[in-house]
Design a protein around this nucleic acid. Structure first.
Lengths: 241, 241
DNA sequence: ATTATCTATAGATCTATAGATAATGC
DNA sequence: ATTATCTATAGATCTATAGATAATGC
């Protein structure tokens, strides 16, 4: 067998550029995506400051210095991951608030919680938890994303305000309510941290819990669930992802 | 004025041991407590891995190496802080489950949430958030405290199970319920992270929210609040802190 | 003598840059 | 020529230890 052909026969085709020290890449992903993926996993497992550029590189099978060809260091990677984890939620908020029939505000809140829970449940490696980490929040790159998070909180506040019952409003003010609703949706992060899957049923239970917190009676919660399903279908038909 | 008296006249009396390089200590706290206090604040602000022993030492006005006289490094400090933040909650859980009249289970859950929220609200520097940090959870010292946290979750699960209504039980299983209840109580951490105070009214709103999540009707929530007040008084008389 | 600090420093990282090199593609 | 890696390394930390020193207390 001619040795000169060995590399060409490798099952993982090498693109342009010098080959990796490991021989060749292990996945078909572009290097950039591969780095993001491993970084996300490591940040979620050990924290941002608790992960070194060397660890990220090793997970990818490249040398530490090679990261800097693709990213401006750890902060650059973090910025990209934050973007990745906040954009989907925010896009959907806009759609919901624009499209929801005003005659059933409960359905809008239910749908927001449902979609948001689903986003947190499916975002890779549970990176929704990045925002909770103090080292991330005190980093410079975080500032850029803070407004987006506040917009999300504000949306929960607005929808919560339209839904809240009198007896609940007597005890809970609107700022508290928004915080509580987000907090409840973020139980998804807690569940995933324990290594469990978050099912569609879980997401429904969470959305229902949000309405319950606002004091919506059970029969209207059930109705909202049905309406939200319709809305979801309509969005799907309109080509919203 | 005799120079030899200058040190004796200093308003901060020095104990035994070599004086600090800053001249003398800035607080009356024992050095050990001073270190814990600054470490807690820094861990909460910048994360555990995001805080160096040097930063802690500087905050105390001592040299980095001097920390090691009092603690076995950063992990030693962390262990002490974890202990400090979990013990009060756990002690109170035991009291509540032992003393609560079984005829009003809602009051027991209300009380647990109320006391737990209060603990999280008053523990120094919001260190309740230590448990959520991935770098802390993946550290060796954390293992020792995991059982205590699980015991707390289990208590919420048991109390939640006795309280939950049929229509809620149809959607939410008991594991989910325990997670939701803790998650709601931990909204205290979120509020404090935003720099806001958590009032007694906030704690009541949170406790009420827990019952609402379980599907307890409003009038029984109000009744539970009153019963919980009575129980609190009784505990106080019995000398429980 | 005991206590609580200090100074000095070794050794292990960790980040980021400079410049070389081995592929592909034109 | 361009691309994507590599090697080598500087410089900045960061942790932890050894041993000195300046108080108090007996």
């Amino acid at each position: 067998m001619p040795t000169v052909l060995t590399r060409q026969l490798s099952n993982v085709p090498t693109g342009p550029g010098r080959p990796r020290h490991t021989g060749s890449r292990s996945t078909q992903q572009p290097a950039r995506e591969e780095i993001l993926d491993h970084a996300a996993r490591l940040f979620a497992e050990r924290g941002f400051s608790g992960t070194s550029t060397r660890e990220i590189a090793e997970a990818c099978g490249i040398r530490q210095a090679s990261l800097y060809y693709h990213f401006a260091g750890k902060p650059g990677i973090l910025a990209e991951l934050l973007e990745l984890s906040v954009r989907p939620s925010l896009e959907k908020v806009e759609t919901i608030e624009r499209e929801c029939p005003t005659e059933v505000p409960e359905a809008a809140l239910y749908l927001l919680a449902l979609i948001d829970a689903h986003t947190l449940a499916t975002v890779p490696h549970n990176i929704g938890k990045l925002y909770r980490m103090p080292d991330v929040r005190s980093s410079e790159v975080f500032e850029e994303f803070e407004p987006a998070l506040q917009a999300l909180t504000a949306a929960y506040g607005r929808l919560g305000a339209t839904v809240v019952s009198g007896s609940v409003a007597a005890i809970v003010n609107l700022d508290q309510l928004a915080g509580l609703l987000i907090q409840v949706v973020e139980v998804v992060i807690r569940i995933r941290s324990r290594g469990e899957e978050v099912t569609r049923a879980d997401a429904r239970a969470i959305a229902a819990t949000c309405l319950r917190i606002c004091g919506v009676p059970e029969e209207r919660i059930a109705r909202s669930a049905v309406t939200a399903d319709d809305l979801l279908l309509r969005f799907a038909e309109e080509g919203q992802t």
